[in-house]
C-alpha cells in the first residue's frame, strides 16, 4: 500500500522533471563536480587514477594509521581492521574489514574521504590504494604481490559479500506473525 502510494506520487515528479519551475541555482562546471565527487560505487565507479602495492601500503600504514589501529591492523584505541572471519555467528563477533565489510570499494571511499582521523582526506589516491592493498592482504583477501587500482579493486570479492539481508521489520508482535504467514 505504502509502496503503491510512493509510486503514484513519484510519477508526476518525473514527468514534471523536464522543465525547472523555479530556475534557482546554477549549473556547476565539470571541474567543480569532479573536485567534490568523492563517492565510490561498489562497481568501482568514481575510483581515481593511481595504484598501490601491499609493500607500499605497509609503509603508509606504519606512518599514518598504526598509531590508532595497532600493528598489522589488530586494533588499538580504534577499531581492528583485521581478523574476525568466522566469528559473526558466535556470541562474540569481531567485525572488521576482513570479516564484515561487503565491498572493498567502501574501504577506499572511507579511507580516502575520512582518514586519518586527525588529518582527514590527506592521503593521495596512490597512498589509499596502497593502504587498502595492505589491509586486504593482512586479511588474506589478496596476495602479497597484488596491486590495487581502479581496475583490480572492484574485482576483489570480500568474504562477507553475501552477509547482508534486507530489513524485515516489523519483526516482533502480531504484525510480524501475519507477515510470516504470507
Amino acid at each position: 500500500m505504502r509502496s503503491l502510494f510512493v509510486v503514484v506520487l513519484a510519477l508526476p515528479v518525473f514527468l514534471m522533471a523536464q522543465s525547472p519551475k523555479y530556475k534557482v541555482g546554477r549549473a556547476p562546471t565539470a571541474e567543480e563536480v569532479k573536485a567534490w565527487d568523492v563517492s565510490i560505487g561498489p562497481d568501482g565507479s568514481g575510483l581515481p587514477e593511481g595504484s598501490g602495492t601491499v609493500a607500499e601500503g605497509k609503509d603508509v600504514y606504519s606512518r599514518r594509521c598504526q598509531r590508532c589501529h595497532g600493528a598489522e591492523g589488530k586494533g588499538a584505541d580504534d577499531a581492528a581492521l583485521v581478523g574476525g572471519q568466522g566469528t559473526l555467528a558466535t556470541p562474540k563477533p569481531l567485525k572488521t574489514v576482513g570479516s564484515f565489510w561487503p565491498y572493498a570499494t567502501s574501504l577506499f571511499d572511507y579511507t580516502h574521504r575520512s582518514m586519518p582521523f586527525k588529518d582527514p582526506g590527506t592521503l593521495t589516491p596512490n597512498q589509499v590504494y596502497a593502504v587498502v592493498a595492505y589491509i586486504l592482504n593482512l586479511n588474506g583477501i589478496i596476495g602479497p604481490d597484488d596491486k590495487m587500482n581502479a581496475q583490480t579493486l572492484p574485482k576483489v570479492r570480500m568474504p562477507n559479500r553475501d552477509g547482508f539481508v534486507k530489513d524485515p521489520r516489523p519483526d516482533t508482535g502480531a504484525k510480524s506473525k501475519k507477515k510470516a504467514v504470507k
Binding site: G41, L88, D109, F164, V165, K166, D167
Partner: peptide
C-alpha cells in the same frame, strides 16, 4: 544503486544470531 558507505555497512547494520546482518534499516 546505493554506495555502501562505511556508515551503512560497517556501522548501522544489525548482526543477527545467524551471522547475517540487516542492512539499510532506516
Amino acid at each position: 544503486e546505493p554506495f555502501y558507505t562505511k556508515d551503512e555497512t560497517s556501522k548501522y547494520t544489525e548482526l543477527m544470531p545467524d551471522g547475517k546482518a540487516r542492512i539499510f534499516t532506516f
